[in-house]
Amino acid sequence: MEEAKTLKLLHDMMRVRRMEELCAELYTQEKIRGFLHLYIGEEAVVTGVMSLLQPQDNIMATYREHGHALLKGIPAKSIMAEMFGKIDGCSKGRGGSMHLISAPHRFFGGNAIVAAGIPQAVGLALASKKLKEDRQTVCFFGEGAVAEGVFHEALNMAELWKIPVLFCCENNYYAMGTALARSQAQLNLPKKAEAHNVTAQSVDGMNVFEVIEKTRAALDFITREGRPYFLEFRTYRFRPHSMFDPELYRSKDEVLKWKEKDPINFLIEHMKKNDLLPPEKLDALEKKIEAEMQEAIRFAEMSELEPLEDLGKYLYENDL
């Protein structure tokens, strides 16, 4: 049983990474346009957190959300079609990479205004609480968001009104190219949450087991106390901020050092050491993922464009 669970974690992390790698390739082929923010290096965070969630749980994420969408259950082909701007995309091709949305998966985006999703997640959690629904609400955002006023506004109100929501701060140390240390006087992120009386903790975001352990404790706390919780996941993006980023702000050495902590390699090593991963299993996993992703790309290629006459559709519920 433990073996199956661990293998599932590895599978999910590798799916997220492979999808991102293919997105980068498809971007250079101009199949995907606009902004594209890749999650490579940070996979342990989303994999660990999502492994504890149920289909009915609410997710609010950011513009670096492909992995979150995939692991919340949105099929790779709907995600890929969305990247291609096609009608079979999860947002009908209207959102693109930054705005993956799926109501049936309770995946509310894909909000690309830094920190804007945070109060909205508090609102979602408030709704579930008032409607007495059995759902958790989890909000992902980067460490850049802690500089926004609305981050502090939302944390304060979440604690003030006892709203059960999990804040997941994915600290990859750079807000685009601005290092945390160059933009914040207080580098201890849990302290920022604690300033609003929100219980908080830091997590090694490169270690999926630690992610799971601390997230489980946070979710238990939220259920037990009916209050918010803040987790800082220390992680790193191995790729540039977006496809336009020349990476002038960090050294190759720094990137290499973090790559030594690659969360997928870490898990593979762990599994090998414990005889949980015979070579043929890893092989089979890779093949399975490749098939899934290639099928997603084929689907996206074949999907139609939304008809031009529908451009004005869905502005309001009823046409005006």
């Binding site: 804007a116 508090v122 609102g123 408030l126 506004e153 939302a154 304060n156 109100m157």
Partner: peptide, 10 residues
């Protein structure tokens, strides 16, 4: 901004 956002989420 915060409570309008909470309204949107709700």
């Amino acid at each position: 901004n915060g409570f309008t956002g909470i309204g949107i989420g709700a």
